[in-house]
Amino acid sequence: MLENNLSQLEELVGNLVQENKVLLESNAQLRGELAQLKEENDSLQLSALEQEELHSATAARIQALVALAAGSVATSASPAQA
């Protein structure tokens, strides 16, 4: 009976060691994927900030052009009325 219990214990320990190996490999793979995704996230955030800056600059240029056009229309309308 003791020999049978010892054999079962050896088998269970072997199974646990194998499962631990699988989990360690999976953990290493997930850590690698996480690092890659963090890098991609950082890159996307930087790109979003750059796009936001471009959008702000474009909006400012459009507003300046609209103001210029509005001023030009007001200036050309004034002499016609005089």
Rank of each mutant, 00 (worst) to 15 (best):
E40H: 07
N27A: 09
L68P: 01
Q18L: 11
L24S: 06
S56E: 09
A67D: 15
S43W: 12
L37I: 07
L44P: 00
R61G: 03
L6I: 03
Q18C: 03
G14K: 06
S7L: 13
E40Q: 15
L9K: 11
T75F: 13
L34F: 02
L34N: 03
G71M: 10
L23I: 10
Q63A: 14
V66G: 03
A59K: 06
L37T: 10
S76D: 04
V22H: 01
S72R: 04
M1S: 07
L49P: 01
R61T: 07
E11I: 10
Q29H: 08
S78G: 06
L46W: 03
H55E: 12
Q63N: 15
A59E: 15
T75K: 06
L65Y: 06
V73P: 00
L30W: 00
V66K: 15
L24R: 06
N15C: 02
N15W: 05
V17T: 09
A69G: 01
R31C: 01
A67M: 11
N15A: 13
H55P: 00
E39Y: 06
A77L: 15
L37K: 13
L46G: 08
K21E: 04
E3R: 04
V66P: 00
S26Q: 07
A48K: 08
L9P: 00
A48E: 10
G71S: 08
A70S: 15
V66N: 11
Q51S: 12
A64C: 10
T75S: 02
G71W: 03
T75R: 09
V17D: 07
A70F: 08
L34Y: 04
L34C: 00
L2R: 05
S56F: 04
N20K: 10
Q81S: 11
L65G: 01
S76V: 12
R31S: 03
P79E: 01
A77Y: 11
L2Q: 04
E33P: 01
A64P: 00
E40K: 14
S47P: 00
V73H: 04
Q8L: 05
A67Q: 14
K38Y: 05
N27G: 01
M1Q: 04
S43V: 11
L23H: 05
G14E: 06
N4W: 04
A35P: 00
Q63M: 13
Q8I: 10
E50T: 10
E10H: 02
N20G: 08
N15I: 10
L9Y: 09
K38H: 05
L24M: 12
A59I: 09
L12K: 14
L49C: 02
V22S: 02
E52R: 07
Q51M: 07
L23P: 00
K21W: 05
L2K: 06
Q45K: 15
V73N: 03
Q8C: 05
R61I: 03
N5A: 08
L44H: 03
I62W: 08
E19M: 14
L12I: 09
V73A: 15
A80I: 13
L23Y: 11
G32C: 03
A67V: 10
T58Y: 06
E19W: 10
L2S: 11
A80E: 06
S76Q: 08
A28M: 01
L65A: 09
Q18F: 04
L30E: 02
